[in-house]
Design a protein around this nucleic acid. Structure first.
Lengths: 230, 230, 230, 230
DNA sequence: TATGAATGAGCATTCATTCAT
DNA sequence: TATGAATGAATGCTCATTCAT
């Protein structure tokens, strides 16, 4: 029956919306308090749902967190891929990648920070491995693999741009993975400044600095690096 | 009375020792569990003191943490200064600084991570009511300011080496603060990889990569960078 | 130092008292609400301690329950043994055993009921076996064995009296274990009447009925049972 | 309109069926988990109905439980009456009653246990507000009274057999109610063993033991009991 | 001084029940 | 009628901190 279908559809639609809403509430709370200090109560309050309702949408606090991260990762990944596929010269793409990443970090601010940092708690939440915590009967399923995939996609997006540049002679020849690692480190390092740092650059400034610096470091010798002229 | 003084002195000595001992215990625990997941009970157990006793030496969990960090920072700062004052050529010093920092990060591993990251919890810990308290060996001054100082010292140590290099012509001329910032970012970024990262380099490898890369990026044009040859 | 010792002793004394007090509070609550419906909060309230304090004395709700039961069992066992060792004729001892058991059941009323009944929950609490519940990481230690011992002691106390009677010719010869089982069943059955039963006999009446009935059933044929005389 | 009636009838029929189905699902779940540990969700899942639907058929979890028990009791009662009305000698009937009861207990295992035992929870369930509700096939009368009736019927079935035996001289003369009470106790006691008991007899063995023992205890003196012969 | 004991506030999670469609 | 969604009230358990000795 069409009517039935429509109703169901609408219901599903609404659930999806609620889910999104809960996630965005959760993101706010996690961003503000970190993982361990964010209580499900807080999230529920922010989402204006009852705590019990959250548990209809997610099986645990950890799952909420996982979902928040995944959502955000995938968004970033989409951006990355979009840039990578553009029809522009490599250096411009590189610049865009840098700018995009820094903007993304800025947008997700403390949130990315949590992810990078509250190690044991997050690992536990993500079900990755165990270290010195108990974790008795948890299904070691699905999710971690998904994560690994996204991360890998990130890296390969980066690497492929760098490789492209090396092939076209814009970048000097070096292990592209190593180069990718260095670029990644620069990006991370630019954003995560510890909380006492007082110098602050805008995203634009940072992009310029980082890009210029990275270019000088990787520029092919033919294009004036290690200037063995005449 | 001299006898009285001696007794007092001995008592103070013992307190200072206990304090140190507690801090080293706390460092272990914080390193293993992160800030929020480390319980005062754990620390007390590790230090083989009663929980209540810890509260005689420190006013709160946050303060213990703060102290642990300060201790560690100062140690690092000493190392930095030592290197900076050595009588060697700038490039060697640079390399040493890089190596030292990466080693330090590695040694303090997750611990530095926490400090850099578990924002809300840590900030809360640091902004804690800091007034007078019984500890004789610690100046009753507000700690956060001290932190800022240490950080600043770090930066200026770095900057001064870079400046030295620029002046001696080893490095290309640029804003030394900017250069310091970039070096800092590289160092941070090299160490704090997300937890899904699979590539791992040893400290030696990292030092080489980082140093070489940084050099290529900053080398003075005369010394072959931006090869504007005759 | 004597002073130290005394202080310690007093402290231990007080802890033991508190423990007892908590247990008696717990017994009340368990008796009123059964195991699953008794909340640790209830017990804490009854004991006029904070919930957290209960957790200083016992590791879990289950452990509290276990302790309550053990305490009570051991008390009963002491009574049993006392009777068994009396220097009286077997029939009188039997009567006393019956009376004692019924009184004990009455005193521990609903409490024994819980123990006998709220199977899965209690089993879980006692750590016995698992049936269809999860129970992830629990140390399957100590306690169950202790229980088994007490139960066994009960049974052997009964059996030994019956055997004694058979040997002295007061009871007819039969498998003493079987006889013990039947007596046990009668005792249990007399007490656990379901909650709709309206007829109620006093302990004295019950003792008389049960004893007389059991005697008639077990009396040795020589002493007029199966009186095929002539 | 006849058509209307038919429709209504069919609807009622279907509701009655659903009701039965839900009850049998509930019985399974209660048997497995006990009363308090059985969740309405579990029952709904087992019955393949939505939780809300259950609440259209029953006003509460307690009412479901009540109904399950009633259903089961009435079934047992039918069995009892059937045996009682058979045209066989009293001793054979007695044996059958015993066997039937033990089998029934076994079949309803933990379920009967719950009913007999999980006091507070069950009592609460039974004293529940019982007023009018939509179920057409159940008399709107207070259920507890009904319970009492069923129990009474049980007892009178037993008593009447015993009385019959006394009159025919197979059993010794005694208060038939008392005798019934004792038999009941034996039956209950035989089935509801504490959970630590290790000896287990089959239904057949139990029947033999119990019957033989009960007979020896109640047999009329003429038929060799209390054999004070000439 | 050192500590064992005590606790208030909190936390993740569950569940019987209601409600809107 | 049937149901998916929503929730208030609990529940077992933990932990930073205080207090009495």
């Amino acid at each position: 029956m069409a009517r039935r279908d429509l109703r169901k559809e609408r219901a599903q639609q609404r659930m999806a919306e609620n889910r999104k809403f809960i996630l965005s509430a959760a993101e706010k709370v996690f961003a503000k308090n970190g993982y361990s200090h964010a209580s499900v109560d807080d999230i529920a309050r922010e989402a204006q749902f009852s705590k019990a309702t959250l548990y209809r949408y997610f099986r645990s606090k950890g799952e909420i967190f996982t979902a928040v991260i995944m959502e955000s990762f995938q968004e970033a990944l989409r951006g990355f891929t979009r840039i990578q596929q553009k029809d522009r010269d490599t250096e411009a793409k590189l610049r865009e990648i840098i700018h995009y990443t820094l903007s993304y970090y800025k947008k997700k601010e403390s949130f990315a920070r949590i992810f990078l940092m509250e190690r044991s708690a997050v690992k536990k939440a993500l079900n990755l491995d165990i270290e010195e915590h108990m974790m008795p009967t948890i299904d070691k399923q699905a999710i971690p693999e998904e994560f690994r995939q996204v991360i890998t996609s990130f890296q390969s997006a980066l690497t492929s741009i760098l490789q492209e540049g090396m092939e076209s002679g814009v970048f000097r020849r070096m292990d592209p993975q190593e180069a990718g690692y260095i670029l990644g480190a620069l990006l991370r390092g630019f954003h995560f400044r510890g909380f006492v740092q007082e110098i602050t650059y805008t995203v634009e400034e940072s992009t310029d600095m980082l890009h210029s610096f990275f270019m000088h470091g990787i520029q092919a010798s033919g294009r004036s690096h290690e200037g063995e002229c005449a």
